[in-house]
Design a protein around this nucleic acid. Structure first.
Lengths: 186, 186
DNA sequence: TGGTTATACGGTATTGATACCGTATATGAT
DNA sequence: ATCATATACGGTATCAATACCGTATAACCA
């Protein structure tokens, strides 16, 4: 094997950001940063379903279809999401994905994960707050988020109001300018 | 060479985030995302000084000492910085670095670079668009931004509408979720 | 020279966001 | 046990955002 490949493999493993490869939501490769970020050793993770890295099965199901359309069109997608560490502590991450198979995005995915807040901050957000935040960052209205979560739009407004209070911001725009991030260029 | 190394090298290159390795500020390895982000092909970059990737020599000097102390203590460092694309266009990045040689951090660095703003196919934001974006990210209304810039609120709405069209987003929330850290106008 | 875009401003109409009022249940902490 | 908080939902009122209609000027580019 050539020196170039060796160097790339070393850079992969030493990267200051978590990187993982999946095939149909099963992890086939990851670097040390990724494993450590989630409290595992790499051998524990290889071959595992991504299910164990999400807080709940519902969350695992929910995120599956998010971004599928963007990946079919642009080959890439990003958002922010909560991952679950081995000890159960939630980790709030900037997530970026690129598919190598745009026709069937989940068939071969390469992802990067960067923790954006310490665990304490992340843990302070409730499940509902994360779900609503996810919708807001995708530009959905209260009505649309309510439909997605099977709740009254009125309840979404309550949750959003709580988020605004917690982060001491004036409105949703200011909230998202603090919580969100950009899609990777390709 | 074993299959594991091969897989790691593939993941490195397909990662949705720029990754680079340097020895004393000379780039020894990078992935395709990194090269493309800055408008190069990888072979153009290998062996080059990082100098060419910064807007000015002064900026190149300035960032050298930034984070050195943090890396000596923790082995890693992160900030936001401006990189310079081959065509001269500045690119704002979330920068993360890990040193493999804490005693002399710059001796062996592994870095990740994530653009924090969409590239819009090379097109750039106008001065007005940046000014308005800055106001929006601070949660100001059109009326408030208009007052700040000495313009009619109506004009602010025009600029905002243009931003929404350019980035193909539904509303200001989705816009800001992609733009994070809007920079004040220059 | 005409076409495109950015800028700047006016109007109107509809929808969404935000802030209040209220009730109710469940949970967890002091 | 009481208090605080999260959840969930109803109403109303007001303001902002968004999408249209229009005009006008200036810059740049083929």
């Amino acid at each position: 094997m050539d020196d170039l490949t060796e160097k790339m493999a070393q850079a992969f493993d030493a990267a200051p950001i978590g990187i993982a490869v999946s095939h149909h939501r099963v992890l086939s490769m990851c670097n040390t940063s990724f494993a450590k970020m989630l409290g595992y050793d790499r051998p524990d993770l290889l071959g595992q379903s991504f299910r164990i890295l999400y807080p709940t099965h519902a969350e695992f199901d929910r995120v599956r279809d998010i971004g599928l359309k963007a990946m079919e069109e642009h080959g890439s997608y990003s958002d922010e999401r909560m991952m679950r560490r081995k000890d159960g502590v939630p980790v709030w991450c900037r997530f970026r994905a690129r598919t190598l198979t745009p026709a069937d995005p989940l068939a071969h995915l390469v992802m990067s994960f960067a923790p954006i807040r310490d665990q304490l901050d992340g843990a302070q957000l409730t499940k509902r707050e994360r779900e609503v935040l996810s919708g807001l960052s995708r530009g959905l209205t209260s009505k649309e988020i309510g439909r997605e979560l099977g709740l009254s739009p009125r309840t979404i407004e309550d949750v959003r109001a709580r988020l605004l209070r917690k982060f001491e911001v004036k409105n949703t725009s200011e909230l998202l300018s603090r919580m969100s991030y950009a899609r990777p260029a390709n």
